[in-house]
């Protein structure tokens, strides 16, 4: 899949933002006043910014409201509702915390839950797609939620939780890659099933329908060289998980914390780039590419 900047930004930032919100709403860290304001501001900026980024990717952002209508079937629609609900609930919670110093636990807990649910909904936009076997797997959702929470833990300074979540996610990510690499092959979709011509012999693509690119090839047939991908995977693993975890294991300094966050965010962008770039859409089969 084409790794579009807007979507990488959207999924990374909104994940981080909702992760942080989830912690803040549980009172972690137990900040108040302007410090709370800064924390919440960061969280809302990330979550909201991510959501706004996602509209850059729309052909008709002015019609975005229509996206709320199909929550019964569409994960994208559900995500929209959940994001709004989350922002409303957590916003209320934040306002109460910042301006009145009151913490309504139930409201906070609901907010946290909604954060997780929103990220889950986001993940399901991808995980539901049978057409992208690499995504069509439980690890996609678990990783989206896990990464969101890990990021939240990291940003909220919950060191132990962060280390635990980061390392778990790292292992999970490794597992997702390992198993993901063969998932297209295992999905049962191949040139033979795509064309129905497999009974005759080995099918290869000859001429593409048009000599130039088209929306489908631009959008869905993005090919990263294996060597390249392997390097990026290692970098991403180190930046997202290992480096921050290590830094957190060291005696706490603000500098280390800042580096840990920066490393994680950078790593997250790389991860997401790979998430899209490495995802093979079955339509690539029609073009003899994956």
């Amino acid at each position: 899949m084409h790794p579009a900047k807007s979507i990488i930004l959207f999924t990374s930032l909104s994940g981080l933002g909702f992760g942080l919100l989830a912690f803040l709403c549980l009172g972690v860290p137990p900040v108040t006043d302007w410090i709370a304001f800064v924390f919440f501001a960061v969280a809302f900026a990330a979550a909201g910014g991510g959501l706004i980024a996602s509209t850059f990717h729309l052909g008709h952002p002015e019609r975005a409201l229509k996206a709320f209508t199909q929550w019964r079937t569409s994960w994208l629609s559900r995500e929209g509702w959940l994001a709004v609900a989350t922002l409303a609930v957590t916003g209320l919670y934040a306002a109460l915390v910042i301006f009145t110093g009151t913490r309504i636990f139930i409201l906070g807990a609901l907010g946290s839950l909604l954060c997780v649910a929103t990220t889950f909904a986001t993940s399901m936009i991808y995980a539901q797609l049978k057409t992208v076997p690499r995504w069509n797997h439980w690890t996609t959702s678990v990783l989206f939620v896990g990464l969101s929470l890990a990021g939240g833990a990291l940003l909220s300074g919950s060191v132990r939780a962060a280390i635990l979540l980061l390392l778990t996610c790292g292992v999970l990510q490794f597992y997702a890659w390992k198993t993901g690499d063969s998932r297209l092959a295992e999905s049962g979709s191949n040139m033979a099933s795509a064309t129905g011509l497999g009974d005759i012999g080995t099918v290869t693509a000859f001429e593409p329908p048009h000599t130039g690119g088209n929306y489908l090839t631009d959008e869905m047939v993005f090919v990263v060289a294996r060597k390249h991908a392997l390097k990026l995977r290692s970098i991403a693993l180190v930046l997202t998980f290992l480096a921050p975890a290590l830094l957190l294991l060291l005696p706490f300094t603000h500098l280390f914390a800042a580096i840990a966050v920066a490393s994680h965010v950078l790593g997250l962008f790389t991860l997401r780039w790979l998430f899209f770039a490495e995802a093979e859409h079955v339509v690539g089969l029609y073009y003899g590419r994956r």
Binding site: G59, H60, R63, L129, K130, V283
Partner: peptide
């Protein structure tokens, strides 16, 4: 007139049967 041009339907189609119009973005 209802399409926001999100492209998700094209992702969901295994057959490559949907294309975003390069000009109208629907």
């Amino acid at each position: 007139s209802d399409c926001i041009g999100c492209g998700l339907c094209a992702w969901a189609c295994p057959y490559g049967a949907r294309e975003m119009d390069p000009s109208e973005k629907v």
